[in-house]
Design a protein around this nucleic acid. Structure first.
Lengths: 210, 210, 210, 210
DNA sequence: TATGAATGAGTTTTCATTCAT
DNA sequence: TATGAATGAAAACTCATTCAT
């Protein structure tokens, strides 16, 4: 059944994936309409359902597809991970940002359906997420050098502090640039980096007089 | 049109608001059903639509209502704001948490419809959010004492650092306690405060050996 | 929900019932189309589903409706039941025929959905049938006079013999007159009666030389 | 068009026929799915439609096929027909039962589509049935010995009486054993025969005191 | 003003049939 | 000939919105 879809000409496959990902990413699972998808993709209702069986399977296919593509981008960059905690976190945060900017729809599909899980998909999505987290999170925070830390500072807590902050910063950027073209963000990357570094400096050395 | 609603007996108005807020807060804009609302509120379909015109207006009314109530809670607490930057931020973050716990449905309605803006409402919501931010954010961070700061540290940036971090921490708590009863959170408040203080300590004095 | 339907003007109720009974009686449950029903009845899709909820409930309502009407006709005639076994059976068979001819669609709906039970309705229909049989069958074969029977003849077996035969004869008439107007059958009633009597004579006294 | 099908290797033809007969016999015309048939038969959709043109023609082909096979079984047994009316009828009824048990699917296809004629096929099926009845019925009741009959008894009517009764009895058995395995019926054959004989005795000599 | 029955375009899904390969 | 992907009308059902009462 899904083999039929996989055997389609690449151009057509891509068109269908793009259309459906866009619909799901922008509207969310429940509101998205298979009607609207087939119209935009220029295929028949019957075709879509012969490829994927039903709306739920279609969504899960696209979720897997998106997740894999995003994770591949992570894997490609994995070897460049710096060993210093701060640098590692910054690198990771910027990597997330680059990937989001390179694949905004795939990213949105994954992120929004995880933060706002449709009831019907809860079990399946939960499982997929846990599998990915189990595989990637340990990898990303392995082999970290914490020798620079003050005594009495819990490295785990520091990691959490930085992660929470950088995730928040990431969200802020996303909101800021949501309605602007992608290029503009890339052009401002230098400025973004400068800001990152300022924050990191504060986290490293504190903001109070010693 | 809306005047008719405002002229209703207070008890009936409240009942309608409560029912509709709950529906929207728990299910989201698109999935929520006016049918289910009128049934739960014990009014007729015609009534609801004569009060609010359509689903969209109903939602925007409730959004305004919720936002105002939440902002009033802020205003009431405004005078207790500590003047030290860190204390102010922590106070603000805890205030947000208390308000969320006091009015979970109003808060959820606002927060979830901002993070997950329904297509149809994007413009209007964007505008409302910006108006509120423009009014409240400067107020909240006025008259701060920054005399403890190291030289060369930009107080505005520090503010942003802390705010972003504490908002992220807040979100983490929300997710953690999403499926548990409100009381449990109050009971754990002490532990939460301890964690807050640890993080604040790190932010103040840094995590690297000086 | 069904109250709404019951509260409709009698004329409209009848129109809807007639249209839906006809569709179900002639096509059977699965093939019958709610689309086609609403078109023929001149109401909207929404209306039909607000009256009955879904196709299954609609059908069960009409089944109950039909069964009750048919059973009422039986009840009205009950007191005229002869006490002789043969006469009783003939009377019963002719009564069935008269009712079938008076309400051919209601009868067909009931008969055809019992002989050809749609999987989806099996449980419900089975139950209804059993309830009716439990109530009517004992009534119909009560107080029979079997004093005329030869010795060694089991009255129960005779009853079965006659019932099976008369039911078969009934079916034969139905098939014969299926495509002809109802009046024609009424006009031929005399002939039908004659045939019945001939058969009964044979059953009573046998066909072999004694 | 159908020649292509007839020219197929016998094994393939049989497989297709078996699969389609089973589907139609168990589900009925309208509910049966050509999709499911081609899957089970291991052929392509195109093939099925190139052999038979459309679903209707496919069904009519299988109906003819089934009818012919069943009628052949009758023909093979024809010479064993007893000449006494009663014996002939009983023989005939048991023959029908044997054939039904030997070819339950072919029989079910024919019987169920005759008792519950799909709208779309009514005309064609009607015609086929009449042709078969016109050919076989006279044959089967030829050369009967009616010398044992009472005077004044119309042999034609007796024949009809017995036929209608035995057909009804047959139906009753079918319903009784509908959900049980075929073997069970064969095992109970003795009991069935006993019941037949009891009824026949009643028909011969009547049930009233002479 | 208030009611709630009525509307109909919308949803997901199925399936006999066609036709390019 | 044979294939099976593609088609699209049709199915059951929903729901925001309207309007006669």
């Amino acid at each position: 059944m899904r083999d039929v879809f996989e055997g389609l000409p690449e151009e057509k496959k891509q068109r269908i994936i793009n259309v459906c990902v866009e619909e799901f990413a922008l509207k969310g699972y429940e509101i998205s309409s298979t009607n609207s998808m087939v119209k935009k993709a220029g295929i028949s209702k019957g075709a879509l359902f012969s490829y994927f069986g039903n709306k739920k399977s279609l969504f899960l296919y696209l979720f897997d597809f998106s997740l894999e593509r995003l994770m591949n981008s992570f894997d490609e960059a994995k070897d460049e991970a710096p060993s210093d905690l701060f640098e590692r976190c910054v690198w990771y945060s910027l990597l997330k940002m680059k990937i989001y900017l390179k694949e905004p729809l795939l990213s949105r599909l994954v992120v929004s359906s995880v933060t706002n899980m449709p009831r019907e998909l809860e079990k399946e999505l939960q499982e997929k997420i846990e599998r990915v987290q189990g595989k990637y999170i340990p990898q990303l925070f392995d082999g970290l050098n914490t020798s620079n830390f003050k005594e009495g500072v819990d490295p785990q807590k520091v990691l959490e502090l930085i992660t929470i902050f950088l995730d928040g910063l990431f969200d802020k950027y996303l909101k800021t640039y949501k309605h602007r073209p992608v290029e503009e963000i890339f052009n401002n990357m230098e400025e973004v980096m400068k800001e990152y570094n300022e924050y990191i400096e504060m986290l490293k050395n504190g903001v109070y007089k010693s």
